[in-house]
């Protein structure tokens, strides 16, 4: 014999349609595809950082003396350029959300100009380094420095190309306050690239 326990009449039936969003569930900023790319980028740099730490553990003297050989002014300059560029992109996103497309384009152009400061400083730093004999044969610290910073430079170039594309599309009116996932996806990529630089900068220019 089974006992059937009836539900109390106060229990409401589940509502039809999509479930309401759970508090704290969040969303995917930009697009899924961009986040796949971002996690590939993070994985790539995580591996390069692992190589850096192993090389540093095996050659502590070379890495301790390393930062003195690099230009701290150039390293700080890269950091300030990327941070300011990221700030402009964040302001552009907010301008788009409130529907001010002209301000969005202006902030994006400012972000592009500051972003260009990164390769511009790189040219001057490379000239300085080569004049001081800091090329690929200058030891394990300098080799580590070149492979990590050049990989980051490639990502900055991709970001600058993406930024040009987003500026053009914003100017053509492709984004609206309701739908600007392309702009947001680019902003995510640019901020992550910025964050990776914030990790590289102290490793080579401050700690060694």
């Amino acid at each position: 014999m089974t006992l059937a326990v009836p539900l109390p009449p106060t229990v409401p039936a589940p509502a039809p349609g999509p479930l309401p969003a759970q508090p704290g569930a969040g969303r995917i900023p930009g697009s899924k595809a961009m986040w796949v790319g971002i996690f590939c980028e993070i994985t790539e740099f995580a591996l390069l950082f692992a190589v850096f730490f192993v090389a540093r553990a095996h050659h502590p003297e070379a890495f301790q003396a390393g930062p003195e050989r690099l230009s701290l002014l150039a390293g700080t300059g890269y950091t300030l350029m990327l941070l300011t560029s990221g700030w402009c992109v964040a302001r552009a996103l907010h301008a788009m959300r409130r529907g001010d497309k002209r301000a969005t384009v202006r902030w994006m152009l400012a972000g592009f100009v500051f972003g260009l400061g990164y390769p511009a400083i790189k040219v001057f730093e490379l000239q300085r380094n080569f004049a001081l004999g800091l090329d690929g044969s200058a030891g394990v610290f300098i080799v580590s420095y070149y492979y990590l910073t050049f990989t980051h430079l490639v990502h900055v170039f991709w970001g600058l190309l993406g930024m040009m594309w987003v500026i053009v599309r914003t100017g053509l009116g492709a984004y609206t306050p309701e739908e600007h996932s392309g702009l947001e996806a680019f902003a995510c990529y640019w901020h992550i690239t910025d964050m990776i630089w914030l990790m590289i900068f102290p490793l080579f220019y401050l700690l060694g």
Binding site: G24, A25, G26, R27, I28, P29, W35, G86, W87, V89, A90, A187, C188, H191, I192, D194, M195, L198, M199, P202, L206, L207
Partner: peptide, 26 residues
Amino acid sequence: VSLVMAIKLRLVCNYFLELHEAHPRI
């Protein structure tokens, strides 16, 4: 230096990347 790095990364995450609004896995 690590403390300064962590604070800077957190500032970018919170205010530029708006990570608090993102999906929990991200």
